[in-house]
């Protein structure tokens, strides 16, 4: 359909959407649904439930569109909405009380059976990394995820996680530090060449 939007024109896109432009609505969906789904699946392994929540936030958007305020960052808006929607749905009692943000789970396991792993030694290293990941707090995991997988800035991730800027940075840096402890002392070198890895022992 008529997709007359440049990549970084969130303000315009959002304004068109608020004014009732259905194309704008579809562009927003297409641009963000994949990363929203990935993010949502870290709160619950139930993929169908994550889809339902995404469905609900887009229906809410359509329903309240004329009353929505301006935004220049649609991704941030959607990430916040989805997180709120999933958490509320996982813990019905939270609707009435405040949620203890520290208690919200964030599943982040590093698969070691992935086809993408090229060698056995690489598999071993990922197993170590997975063990280190398990020692992180849910919020450290979420911060690292939002920074490196969702590609949010510290400013954005502090807003999604409702923290101040410095606390958000700290979560990422301390989390990374713990992950690095899993690295082996002896050195393996990997290089990427045309998408495949080859290995040198040294």
């Amino acid at each position: 359909m008529g997709l007359e939007y440049e990549v970084n024109s969130d303000t315009l896109l959002w304004n068109d959407f608020i004014k009732g432009n259905e194309d704008a609505f579809q562009v927003i969906y297409n641009k963000h649904v994949r990363s929203l789904f990935k993010y949502g699946c870290h709160f619950t392994p139930d993929e169908a439930h994550v889809k339902d929540c995404i469905h609900d936030i887009f229906i809410d958007l359509a329903k309240y569109r004329s009353g929505l305020g301006a935004t220049n960052n649609i991704k941030l808006y959607l990430f916040k909405s989805l997180k709120r929607k999933i958490i509320k749905s996982l813990d019905k009692s939270a609707i009435f009380g405040s949620i203890d943000t520290e208690q919200i789970p964030f599943h982040y396991a590093i698969s070691t059976e992935d086809d993408l792993l090229d060698t056995e030694s690489e598999q071993l290293r990922f197993q170590q990394l997975d063990k280190a990941m398990a020692t992180l707090s849910p919020r450290q995991k979420e911060a690292i995820y939002l920074k490196f997988v969702s590609d949010l800035s510290y400013e954005e991730l502090s807003k999604v996680m409702e923290l101040n800027y410095q606390s958000a940075r700290n979560l990422v840096f301390r989390g990374l530090e713990k992950l690095r402890e899993s690295f082996p002392k002896n050195l393996f070198l990997f290089f990427l060449r045309s998408g495949k890895s080859w290995q040198v022992t040294g």
């Binding site: 649904v33 590093i110 990394l129 992950l179």
Partner: peptide
């Protein structure tokens, strides 16, 4: 290696 580890095992639509 760290980055690669963080990115694998994503649920995708």
């Amino acid at each position: 290696f760290l980055l690669k580890g963080l990115l694998i095992n994503e649920h995708s639509l």
